[in-house]
Design a protein around this nucleic acid. Structure first.
Lengths: 114, 114
DNA sequence: CTAACGTTCAACCAAATAGTTGAACGTTAG
DNA sequence: CTAACGTTCAACTATTTGGTTGAACGTTAG
């Protein structure tokens, strides 16, 4: 059903934007750009308890921005860009709209000057 | 100071992503694409009290995604795209990173096939 | 001037969030 | 096998959030 799909997308956006709204979580994403890292490696620069960091990673995982899988006795995390492009697309519909308006304004000014 | 600026940017991102994380607020932004609207016009489709909607608009205003100014006895709201492009830029640094990785992967596969 | 309108403010409530601690779990090194 | 490691779970607390209501405010129509 279409409504269903819209709600789903909405929930995804909720999760992604909520995940991005916290600086500790953005810091985790930044660290993951250097490559996969264990929970411990991600937690140590965070001025926060280990369990606290694990919760943040859980939020990112829930938003599908991070994947966490077991390896040996540690869990290693990797970046997932898919949901970020979804968020980017959503935002772009607004910035596109804005640029369109600017173009119209420019045209109007040009016309007025002639 | 550089650190100062970084913190400022960070707070801005906090505000913007937090504002975007709520479907009611995204609905308000969507309505504003049709043009400026009063608080009342924005509130009515929201299944929520008037004051509640006003709070949501306050969150958007705080993130500088919406400007609210007085006209007569009502306040009219307009969309501000500036902060959205800031958020878009932030996200893009990640999607760019991702595409770069995909390119490297592609190259590696190509090399392997030769 | 007065009444009604559009909006905000203040106080309050329930639920969610961000964080803590300590115990428990599975895994591996020795 | 046992001990240590890396991580998660459970329980708890303080704070923030999303929402309500009713009073108050400034503005304008009549």
């Amino acid at each position: 059903m279409l409504l269903n799909r819209m709600v789903e997308q909405s929930e995804e956006l909720n999760a992604v934007f909520h995940a991005l709204a916290d600086p500790a979580r953005r810091q985790i994403l930044a660290a993951l750009r250097e490559g996969p890292k264990s929970v411990g490696e991600l937690a140590s620069p965070l001025a926060m308890s280990f369990a606290g960091a694990s919760k943040h990673i859980g939020v990112l995982e829930n938003a599908r921005l991070v994947r966490r899988r077991k390896r040996g006795r540690s869990r290693i995390c990797t970046l997932r860009a898919g949901q970020l492009t979804a968020a980017e697309r959503w935002i772009r519909t607004y910035t596109d709209y804005w640029n369109e308006r600017l173009d119209l304004l420019e045209e109007a000014i040009e016309e007025e000057n002639q």
